[in-house]
Computed example of a mutant assay.
Amino acid sequence: MSARARIAVLHRLFVQQPGPIKTGSVVTYYQVQGLAPGRNTVRHDLRAAYQKGLIYHTGPENDRRWHLRSIGGGR
């Protein structure tokens, strides 16, 4: 599956799941969706979604929580 398609799956997770999401939860979600990528792929996808302005993060790097950015670009 292409990175663009995975980002779409990732965005769907954030729309469906209220509140912050941890990287490990994304790994599990990808596996349930039949993607089964490694943790590094998930991190890459999260960074790509962050760079596109779809999500933002809180917390230190070793305990990062990801949030869906509200419409209009604010938190």
Rank of each mutant, 00 (worst) to 15 (best):
A49M: 05
G74V: 08
I71P: 00
H44E: 12
S2E: 15
V42L: 05
A3F: 07
F14R: 03
G34V: 07
G72A: 01
N62C: 05
I7Y: 00
L46K: 04
H57S: 15
R47L: 14
G74D: 05
Q31D: 15
L35C: 09
G72Y: 00
A3V: 12
I55D: 01
A36K: 14
P60E: 08
H11Y: 10
I71F: 00
P18Q: 08
S70N: 09
S70T: 09
V27L: 13
Q33E: 15
G53L: 13
H57T: 14
M1H: 09
G38Q: 08
I21S: 02
P60A: 10
Y30A: 03
R6M: 06
N62P: 01
G19A: 05
V9F: 03
V9E: 03
R64E: 05
H11S: 10
A8K: 09
R6Q: 06
G74L: 07
V15I: 15
I71L: 04
A49N: 02
R6H: 06
Y29H: 14
K22C: 08
G72M: 00
R64A: 09
I21D: 01
V9M: 03
Y50W: 10
A5N: 13
Y56E: 06
G38F: 05
I55G: 03
R12K: 13
N62S: 15
E61A: 15
K22V: 14
S25M: 13
R75D: 10
K52C: 14
Y56P: 02
E61Y: 06
M1A: 15
Q16L: 14
G34R: 07
A36F: 06
V26L: 04
V27P: 04
S2R: 15
V42I: 06
Y30E: 02
P60C: 06
G38S: 09
L35K: 04
H44F: 07
T41A: 12
G59D: 06
R47W: 14
E61R: 15
V32W: 09
L10D: 00
R47D: 12
L35H: 09
H44Y: 10
L46S: 02
F14G: 00
L46E: 05
P20Q: 07
D63I: 03
M1L: 13
W66Q: 03
D45W: 03
Y50G: 07
L54E: 11
K52Y: 09
A5L: 14
L68F: 03
I71C: 00
Q16P: 01
Y50R: 12
A8Y: 02
G73W: 02
I71W: 01
R65Y: 08
Q31M: 04
P18E: 08
Y56W: 13
H67Q: 05
G72R: 00
L46N: 04
S70E: 10
R12F: 03
H11T: 10
V32S: 04
L54W: 14
R6G: 04
